[in-house]
């Protein structure tokens, strides 16, 4: 399972390295074009996620694991007139859930998270942008087995993402984003694919 997770991450990182290489292969004029921009862009996305970590169900019990879930993201990025942009991201996601049957006693467990990240981003070209962020996952376990429990814990983690954006006008764009999210403290990770809307708010220079 760990090998599978590492392989997925390796492929993802290779893609990011590739995109990053393309980014630095841009001409000076392209860089200049991005450097002149001074705006705030709000990204809102939603889609599906696939849990790539080890779900970890209790040993010795029959469990049905659900690895595919919905995911939503909200990101605000300031483009300060440099290639490197900074911002914040949050969202809502479910890493995984499972049900058990312990001699007729059924139980469900859901592992949810709300990330809050400091994010750096960089345009690759006019349409493609890469993101990397680190911060905390505010994790929540919802257990329903012989009583209900909601229990929270904070876990450090990170994410990397790449998005493609098609302009719909001067201030609006639509696109798709693939994102790898990793909660280091709880060893949870997922890969998501989201449809994304982006609004640009130009700032005065």
């Amino acid at each position: 399972m760990r090998n599978k997770q590492n392989s997925t991450m390796l492929i993802f990182l290779c893609c990011c390295i590739g995109l990053q290489s393309i980014a630095f292969a841009q001409t000076d004029s392209t860089k200049k074009a991005y450097k002149t921009e001074n705006a705030i862009i709000v990204y809102a996305g939603g889609g599906g996620s696939f849990f790539t970590g080890k779900s970890g169900v209790p040993a010795g019990l029959n469990a049905e694991v659900e690895n595919v879930h919905l995911i939503g993201s909200l990101r605000v990025i300031w483009h300060p007139g440099h290639l490197l942009h900074i911002g914040l991201e949050t969202g809502s996601l479910r890493f995984y859930s499972y049900t058990i049957d312990n001699n007729g006693k059924k139980g469900t467990t859901q592992v949810d998270a709300t990330p809050i990240f400091f994010v750096l981003s960089m345009p690759v070209n006019e349409r493609i942008e890469v993101f990397a962020g680190t911060g905390n996952y505010f994790m929540q376990t919802k257990l329903d087995y012989q009583g209900q429990v909601k229990s929270n814990v904070r876990s450090i983690g990170w994410m990397v993402a790449a998005s493609y954006r098609q302009p719909l006008g001067e201030h609006l764009g639509i696109g798709a984003e693939t994102k790898w999210m990793n909660s280091t403290g709880t060893k949870d990770a997922l890969l998501s694919l989201q449809i994304q809307l982006a609004w640009k708010f130009k700032l005065k220079k």
Partner: peptide, 15 residues
């Protein structure tokens, strides 16, 4: 790993 997080005091002994 089992998905259970947070203080142990939140959970019953059977859980």
């Amino acid at each position: 790993k089992n998905g259970l997080l947070g203080p142990i005091e939140n959970y019953s002994y059977e859980q």
